[in-house]
Design a protein around this nucleic acid. Structure first.
Lengths: 220, 220, 220, 220
DNA sequence: TATGAATGAGCTTTCATTCAT
DNA sequence: AATGAATGAAAGCTCATTCAT
């Protein structure tokens, strides 16, 4: 069934980290390679109307191609969603891994990691919206793959919390796994209220969220 | 056009506050009044498969009635979702209002409010799941109504944060509105990870979340 | 199936000749006997939206009663339509019979009959619209009954044409049956263009149509 | 939204003037291009049972395709009806324009035009039936378009009446617009009584109708 | 005399996907 | 690499009618 690029492999070119797909940056038509254009328009439309409410017809029209072209590059509509997930997961995992292994105090690393995930979530706000709304629309096996990847990410973050507790900078009471779920709930919900044209920059939100997390953890 | 009980009015009987519709309570068939049964099954199915993935046919089969019966009580599938929202909004608003007006120190009130919303969110976990996943599938006007009600709720909570900052118990730095978005992000995401048969009771999660919030706010 | 008043018998009271149901005269609600109100609203709605596009629900709402009430008086939606037909057929047949048997020259009688059917068609314009649009939506047997009644009417009119030809006042060439179809086509189409608030009164149209018919028949 | 061939453009091939779609010509299946087959079967069925009583399912079964195919070519059931109207309007407008501009006496032109519209109405009797029965089932905007086209046609005919009155061949009394409504009422009603297997040919009816019209107009 | 909950069949339309070209 | 006609299943919704009360 699936013809070409599916899960795991990028479809026809890499998505360079930093390539924002967030609100505003959507080239609306006929520039660039076909698979990229399809992914970009799909991301925009999924975020705007939801996965089930977006028809394949709408995607190909927005990308300026025909259905045959889409099915040439992607095995199914589902594959498109999976690829979007893959892109954002790869990006965030890479960044967290880089931050977590720095030779700085754990307080600093966790503050940076928290701020960074907020900034990149806002820069890719469409992906963020899709992420927490549409996971259950993936096929079960793909859901499993995404969840596994996500768990790895959470575990890396949790390890930082544990490290902070072990070396005495953080209060010992909070359960690290609950801290992670607590914080990433906040992050995933950015998509429901943050607007690029609102009063706050991504960096301001990042600083505040990071500060709230730190204060909830630090010994008084 | 709209036939009968829709938003605002309860469909054929009151939903007593505290009546859990959460994961475990799926009465699978033919007991009770028809509108309640429809609402209960719809809630369960929407939480399980998502709004768009749940067909009207599935709902009526689960409730043991025919489509005609559903459309006798609800004007549309959309109305069903709206009624579910109305139910949970009413419940949570009532409880928060009761807590916010108690004659106790603001620290205590905010801790209680935070813990309470966690407990009721877990008790009605299906509603919680539906809430943050399916809002964008409501018709625009109904979305507006729900958002307005939600804003009222958030403002009450924010007022508690502001009160705590004014009387000097809370740090002055955090922006109250960001605090609210931060905390309710966490609450709304309970549905993505909490399981009734997991290691934590609702009260344990509530205590931890409440504690994390308090520590993020209190002066060191 | 049919409970009470169906074809042939009037439903719960006679419709006095002359009681206009045409546009404008529709009492919109809760005055008068129930069956009359139902018939009046049905007439108005059938004329406005067509038979198939008018739901039983709309009719009972307009008449201010419930479905049960409608089905108490009429056996089916079809019966309503049939009753409307019956009403207008009875009215027009009576009037034509009265005119046709007058002791005046045939030229005068045919001119009067032509003018009269135009006037009463305009006075009951809703019935006229329904008549030629919705006949095929009647059940076959009722269609047959209506057509038989209509044929009787046409034959009376045709007899006048034949009489005029026999006594030499009319040209002998036109086939009397074609003359009847020719003229009643015009009459039945009044509903598609005549408006009460237009520039012409019913009497003016009647005079002109009658004049056109006469001139098409008279020897030069 | 609207997919392909709709109003104005013919769907996949021209309808040659003269291609009869009338009662006898029901090709019942699988010859010819798909859009034409759909249009032909729809015409037959709409004429036979009415627009609302004909289901899309019946149309596609008669044409030997699936619903998807129908909606590939036509945006809606409504579009099908509109296309049928377009076809007959185009045909009749062309023919009237050709006759109206001939260099012959107005009496002759009007007689020919009258006879011609009768003949083509009978040749396309299904379209004629549909025309006057189903106009109000078109969407409002499409109704408007059809009416505008129809008005143009009527105005051309009315101009002939006026010309005849101006040059003294016709009686001055009849109002030209009423003459047009009078005559086309007769024409549109052909579908209610004419049968191809009856005693009269199309040409005989045409001659009689034309003659009746002329005599109603000519000075005695 | 009238209610109104409930039925069950049917409606138009949408959609992801396939495949010959 | 890409087209676009066609499929087939399912979706949300409407409606005339029935019947216990």
């Amino acid at each position: 069934m699936a013809r070409r690029a599916t899960s795991g492999g990028s479809a026809g070119g890499g998505t360079e980290p930093g390539a924002a797909t967030g609100s505003g940056a959507s080239g609306s038509g006929t520039t660039g390679a076909v698979p990229e254009r399809l992914l970009a328009e799909a991301t925009r439309l999924f975020a705007e109307h939801g996965y089930d409410r977006t028809s394949v017809q709408e995607i190909v029209e927005a990308a300026g191609v025909t259905k045959g072209a889409l099915y040439h590059y992607f095995g199914s509509k589902d594959d498109l969603l999976h690829e979007i997930y893959g892109r954002v997961l790869r990006l965030q995992t890479e960044r967290l891994d880089a931050i977590a292994t720095r030779p700085t105090p754990v307080t600093e690393r966790i503050a940076e990691a928290a701020a960074d995930v907020v900034v990149t979530s806002i820069q890719n706000l469409d992906d963020t919206k899709i992420f927490f709304r549409s996971m259950h629309q993936l096929s079960p096996e793909k859901q499993k793959a995404v969840r596994a990847e996500r768990r790895r990410y959470h575990e890396t973050f949790r390890a930082l919390v544990e490290e902070g507790q072990r070396d005495g900078r953080f209060r010992p009471e909070p359960r690290p796994d609950l801290v992670v779920d607590f914080f990433f709930g906040s992050v995933h919900h950015l998509g429901t209220w943050y607007h690029a044209d609102g009063p706050l920059t991504a960096e301001q939100v990042a600083a505040e969220f990071s500060d709230l997390l730190l204060h909830s953890l630090l010994r008084p």
